[in-house]
C-alpha cells in the first residue's frame, strides 16, 4: 500500500522565524513536465522591510561576537549542510539539475562555507595595518562590518548562489537580507532550516523568495541598508540599484562576471567589500631618551 507523502511547505526566513509572505501571494514552481512542485512565497516590499529590521537588530550582536566564535558557527553551518546533503541534491534534481551537477553544487557549497569559516578570524590580519605616521601617535586601521547588506543572489544556482553571496558577508560580521533564485528557490528554505539549527543568531541571515524585478527597487532604496550586492545580469536593474543607492550613499557591488562554480568566486576580497576601514589615532608619550617607534 502506498502512503500519501507529506509535502513540504516552502516559506521564507526572517529573524529566525519561518513566516509566509505578509502579502499572501505565491508563485507556482513547476518541473520540466509542467507539474507544480511547490508554491513559493512571492515576497513583497513589506517582507523586505521586516527582514531588514530583523537584520539591523541582529547585526551589532553578530558583528561583536568573537571572530573565532563566528568561525565556529560558519563551520557548524557547513556541518549541517553536509548532514542534509542528500536533501539538497534531490531538491536540485527536482529543479532540473543532473545528479552529478547537483552533487557537485552541494559539495562546492559546503566547501565554500568551510572556506569562509576559516577566514572569519583571519581576514582582519590581512586588511589591518599599523600606519607609521610621522607624529608621535600610534595609528592603526582595522576592517569593521559595514552593517546590513542586501543581496540579490545568483539566478542560476539554487544553493551555491546563496552560500556564495551570504558567507563572505556574514563572515565579516554583517547581517543580510538575501533574495534567492527565482527559478530555483527550493534550496532556499532548506538552507534556512540549516541556518536555523546551526547556532547562527536569528536575523543575521534573512532569506526571501520572489522576483528581482519587483524587489531590486526596495533592496536598493531602503535608507537603513548599507550595501547592495547584485549577482545577476539585468542592466536596467543594475542601473536602478546604483541610482537608488545614492539616496544614502550605499556601497554597491555587481558580481556577475564570475564563474560561481570556480574558486574565483571565493576570496577574502569578497569579505573586504562589505568592510569599512576604521583608523584610530592615539598619542604616544615619550619619556626617556629615545622616541617610541611605530
Amino acid at each position: 500500500m502506498s502512503r500519501i507523502e507529506i509535502q513540504k511547505t516552502y516559506k521564507i526566513y526572517i529573524g529566525g522565524q519561518f513566516p509566509r509572505t505578509e502579502s499572501g501571494r505565491y508563485y507556482p514552481l513547476k518541473n520540466k513536465k509542467g507539474n507544480v512542485i511547490a508554491n513559493i512565497c512571492l515576497c513583497s516590499r513589506k517582507d523586505f522591510r521586516n527582514a531588514e529590521v530583523a537584520a539591523r537588530g541582529a547585526q551589532s550582536g553578530w558583528g561583536s561576537k568573537a571572530a573565532f566564535n563566528r568561525a565556529q558557527i560558519l563551520y557548524r553551518i557547513a556541518e549541517m549542510l553536509e548532514g542534509r546533503k542528500e536533501q539538497f541534491i534531490s531538491e536540485l534534481v527536482l529543479q532540473g539539475s543532473t545528479l552529478a551537477a547537483a552533487k557537485q553544487e552541494v559539495e562546492v557549497s559546503i566547501d565554500r562555507m568551510v572556506y569562509y569559516s576559516g577566514w572569519c578570524d583571519k581576514f582582519q590580519a590581512i586588511y589591518s595595518s599599523v600606519n607609521p605616521v610621522a607624529s608621535s601617535h600610534f595609528n592603526f586601521s582595522v576592517p569593521e562590518p559595514t552593517g546590513v547588506v542586501a543581496l540579490i543572489a545568483d539566478e542560476n544556482t539554487s544553493l551555491l548562489g546563496l552560500v556564495t553571496a551570504i558567507a563572505p558577508v556574514i563572515a565579516g560580521g554583517n547581517a543580510c537580507v538575501v533574495l534567492a533564485s527565482e527559478s530555483k528557490p527550493l534550496c532556499a528554505v532548506t538552507f534556512a532550516e540549516v541556518l536555523n539549527s546551526s547556532d547562527l543568531p536569528g536575523g543575521v541571515v534573512n532569506i526571501l523568495t520572489g522576483t528581482s524585478a519587483e524587489l531590486h527597487e526596495h533592496f536598493s532604496n531602503h535608507m537603513d541598508v548599507n550595501a547592495v550586492i547584485y549577482y545577476r545580469n539585468n542592466k536596467a536593474e543594475i542601473k536602478t540599484i546604483k541610482e537608488n543607492a545614492s539616496l544614502n550613499v550605499k556601497r554597491v557591488f555587481v558580481y556577475n562576471k564570475i564563474n560561481i562554480m570556480s574558486e574565483k568566486a571565493e576570496s577574502p576580497y569578497f569579505i573586504f567589500d562589505t568592510q569599512e576601514i576604521k583608523t584610530t589615532w592615539h598619542p604616544i608619550e615619550n619619556i626617556g631618551t629615545s622616541k617610541a617607534g611605530y
Binding site: 600606519n131 605616521v133 544614502n248 583608523t279 584610530t280 598619542p283
Partner: peptide
C-alpha cells in the same frame, strides 16, 4: 566613523587611511 582620534584631533598623515562610513 572612518577615523577616530583618541586624545587628539584633526591629525593627518599620508600613511593613514582617511574616509567615511554611511553618508
Amino acid at each position: 566613523a572612518g577615523v577616530v582620534w583618541a586624545n587628539t584631533y584633526n591629525k593627518f598623515d599620508p600613511t593613514s587611511p582617511f574616509g567615511g562610513y554611511k553618508e
